[in-house]
Nucleic acid binder design. Structure first.
Lengths: 132, 132
DNA sequence: CTGGATCCGGAGAGATACTG
DNA sequence: CAGTATCTCTCCGGATCCAG
């Protein structure tokens, strides 16, 4: 069983998990979105369709495993579409779906906030480390 | 060494990590924000100061370990302040700093998006699982 | 050669029990 | 009440292998 099995294990775990969380199924979705690689990937896909290898370079630091796994998750959730062109060698493009596009402004806002306030956070961090 | 050691290990790991990412220090911050428990905690703190036990109940499903660890991280980054009232028993309140408040609209937008589009994602997910 | 699956070792998350 | 210490177990990253 490939990578998808991991996703399925997650699903099963969440199912049991939600049982005692009881009230909020959106929690599951929020967890998915609030993922390091997911936010990075969605931002990377903002500029249109991208190949697997392009994403791999753009998001620099992600392992092939996590890249594939994250993309599969996003595809399953209907946020990203996967198009295989059976040329030689094979070409795989990933693109935001309309649903994915609707999420885009939000994740871009997160990225923008991070870029804007990085210095304040760095200062707070230095302060914290110095005093304690 | 208590929980803080974990945070410090993270720090060290990130330092080595950033070295080969080279270009983008904001990446580090984005990773911190794009965390499951962090987004949940920030949303929970939206309604004003909360005690440790209140947060524990509100964010239902978080372990004490991750709660403490996440709060420490947020405190270090200057997003959350920690106030200890040495009564009997001791009382600890967590509250968003101005910097944390500035991030609030963004994380709330993420939460709102998740709540709004949960059904579409669930449908896409069911579709994906059925066909493949 | 690209895209991806598999296996393995180590880091980190979860649950539990304990302490000031 | 607010953590800390410990143990277990999942999950991540890297290397390797596989299909087209």
């Amino acid at each position: 069983m490939p990578t998808r099995t991991a996703a399925q294990r997650r699903e099963e775990a969440k199912a049991a998990y939600d049982a005692y969380l009881a009230t909020c199924p959106a929690r599951q979705l929020l967890d998915r979105i609030s993922d390091k690689w997911v936010s990075l990937l969605l931002n990377a896909l903002a500029g249109g369709p991208q190949r697997y290898s392009e994403l791999s370079r753009r998001v620099a630091g992600v392992s092939q495993k996590m890249l594939t796994q994250s993309l599969r998750g996003l595809e399953r959730d209907g946020l990203v579409s996967r198009t295989v062109t059976p040329s030689v060698p094979v070409r795989v493009d990933y693109e935001l779906t309309p649903l994915g596009v609707s999420l885009l402004p939000v994740v871009q806002a997160v990225k923008t906030w991070a870029e804007t306030h990085i210095e304040e956070v760095a200062a707070a961090r230095a302060e914290y480390d110095r005093r304690d």
